[in-house]
Amino acid sequence: MNVVVCVKQIPDPAAPPALDAGTKNLVRAGKLILDDSDAYGVEMALQLADAAGGGEVTLVSMAPNGETSGLRTALAMGAAKAILVSDDSLAGTDALGTAKVLAAAVKRAEPDLVLAATESTDGYTGTTPVQVAELLGLPSVTFAKKVEITGNSVKVERQTEAGYDEVESPLPALVTVTAGVVEPRYPSFKGIMAAKSKPVEILTVAELGLDAGEIGAAGARQEITQVADAEARAAGEIVVDEGEGHQRVIEFLEQLKVL
């Protein structure tokens, strides 16, 4: 069974994020890392391919400057190869444009199953995977907390407001996974060494056969008109607990008439 995992490479979330003052795009200058949210998809793909008794896990990513460090992490976990789309014309691409790029790249791998995260850590638009599915004419099951393959279909426990639904779909299909669907492995030393020589195909927008007008800032057909500081909450009172902290909480609740 061949599985494609969409993996986003993002600025380290531990560093304070910033928007470029001119373009209002997220600053992606430094080294990019594998989005934690996608580590679950990678692990899930490896386990499913394993359980199916073989097949390849291919990574698909779109990122600036030919960035591969996040891909190397996922390759070190055990993925076989990667397709990276990197092109200066992609700056400012929106979620739908990203989906067009990812869909074109995914198609090349002819997967039985496509995995992605429910939303990324940095942009969290949360619609990209379903847009990919629609562009590829695939059924999709989002918010999976458990994924199993039986024969030619995928069985998913899909999170709902009330609990979860059991959903079945024939393959090929796209599934988005939540954190907690599986526990991602840490790459082993051997995995890290092997990852260095695994194939990463780097493609441009033209090589994917996409029209330049569909992507980039122009293709986005949306613009940021303003960025402002949010109204800050007034600084609160800080009490260091020396055995009586709970009393202050009770007074506060009384003041609010909650008690």
Binding site: D94, A95, L96, A99, Y124, T125, G126, T127, T128, P129, V130, Q131, V132, A133, E134, L135, S140, T142, F143, R158, Q159, T160, E161, A220, R221, Q222
Partner: peptide, 23 residues
Amino acid sequence: ATYDGRDIAGRLSAKLDRPVLTN
């Protein structure tokens, strides 16, 4: 911004070739 709301919006966006604004 529910599970189904997001799914329908994403599908509609790709179907109509119109962008989305989320969150």
